[in-house]
């Protein structure tokens, strides 16, 4: 049903390279290839999970979408408009539609502000809710995220990690966004709190007709709330599939390895094999040629070392960038 809708967000060939500067005259001595050719899209009402190890560039993708970073190359289109070209007043309008929930619930709230200022400042400054006082609206938002409006006058440090993350969600909601980029929204929280915050995000999605890009390093986290999942490795997307396809038929060796690392609680469900990865993620300053994953891939062939695999569609909506599936899908399930 959703498949027919035009995408809300469309990212095409996104690259972000950070220059490494050194010395007295700040000469550029190299680049960190944080994001190196990422394509993705999000349909209205959809949740896309973006998964990968730390340092694979997933947060950078999120920040480029919000235009906190300017992409080195590639296009980001939101509702058909090129994000990079948005200027002046339109930028404020764009920012009301795309918001972010940050990873660190401690660093993401200004320690010198009270909760009412953190959540209400945008409402006040941009006059977002005419006809309703910003205090009322702030109280309403706090109630929506499960906090008591009596706590409005407290400082952020008086709250627990989970409560702080709720404040961060309320701040994003204040702008009445259509898309929320949640950058590791629960990875800094206790496991017992993680589910609460994920459930909150899920509930708010219905209530405010939101779409999400949920960034996580843990497949277990995105499993619950994603409709589709993209697996990222060293600045590139390795596999995208619907939630169910990815978990039942992971194609890319990297996805398989990631999945085998997710602990399962069901009794009697022994895994046949654990595809554990050897070694570390190569440095994004000097990424390996060919397939980014070949240095750690248990099934690497000679072509993997030289040729970058193209994204191929195996079944509708299930795409993978791996040479294994290139020739007529010989290993195709």
């Amino acid at each position: 049903m959703l498949n027919a809708a035009p995408p809300l967000l469309h990212v095409d060939g996104l690259k972000k390279h950070f220059p490494i500067k050194k010395g007295l005259l700040t000469k550029t001595v190299g680049h960190v290839f944080a994001v190196d050719g990422v394509d993705l899209f999000i349909r209205p009402g959809e949740t896309l999970g973006l998964v990968g190890e730390s340092g694979c560039g997933k947060s950078t993708v999120g920040r480029c979408i919000l235009r906190l970073y300017d992409p080195t190359q590639g296009r980001i289109c939101f509702q058909g408009n090129d994000v990079a070209a948005i200027q002046g007043r339109d930028l404020i309008r764009f920012r009301t539609q795309v918001q972010m929930v940050f990873q660190d619930p401690y660093a993401s709230l200004n320690p010198r502000m009270r909760v009412r200022e953190i959540v209400g400042e945008a409402i006040r400054v941009h006059k977002l809710h005419p006809g309703r006082s910003w205090r009322e609206q702030t109280a309403h938002l706090l109630r929506e995220v499960g906090l008591s409006p009596d706590q409005m006058d407290r400082y952020a440090h008086e709250f627990s990690g989970g409560q702080r993350q709720r404040i961060g969600v309320a701040r994003a909601l204040a702008m009445q966004p259509k898309l929320i980029v949640a950058d590791e929204p629960v990875s800094a929280l206790d496991v017992s709190i993680q589910a609460q915050v994920l459930n909150l995000l899920d509930r708010l999605k219905e209530r405010f007709e939101l779409s999400y890009l949920v960034i996580a390093h843990d497949l277990g986290v995105v499993e619950h709330i994603s409709d589709r999942i993209g697996v990222m490795y060293l600045g590139r997307i390795m596999e995208t599939a619907s939630d169910r396809d990815l978990y039942q038929k992971p194609l890319h060796p990297y996805t398989q390895a990631l999945l085998s690392a997710v602990p399962k609680a069901e009794a009697g469900q022994r895994r046949k094999r654990r595809a554990l990865l050897q070694g570390d993620v190569p440095s994004p300053i000097n990424p390996p040629p060919g397939c980014r994953f070949h240095t750690r891939c248990p099934e690497a062939q000679s072509e993997c070392r030289n040729i970058h695999p193209a994204m191929i569609e195996i079944t509708p909506g299930h795409q993978v960038a791996c040479h294994k599936y290139a020739e007529g899908g010989k290993d195709c399930p």
Partner: peptide
């Protein structure tokens, strides 16, 4: 820091971000 990034993503002016 993330709270400054948040302020930028809330479309506040540079003057407001610096002063507030």
């Amino acid at each position: 820091m993330e709270f400054v990034l948040a302020a930028r993503s809330l479309a506040f002016s540079t003057l407001r971000i610096m002063s507030k």
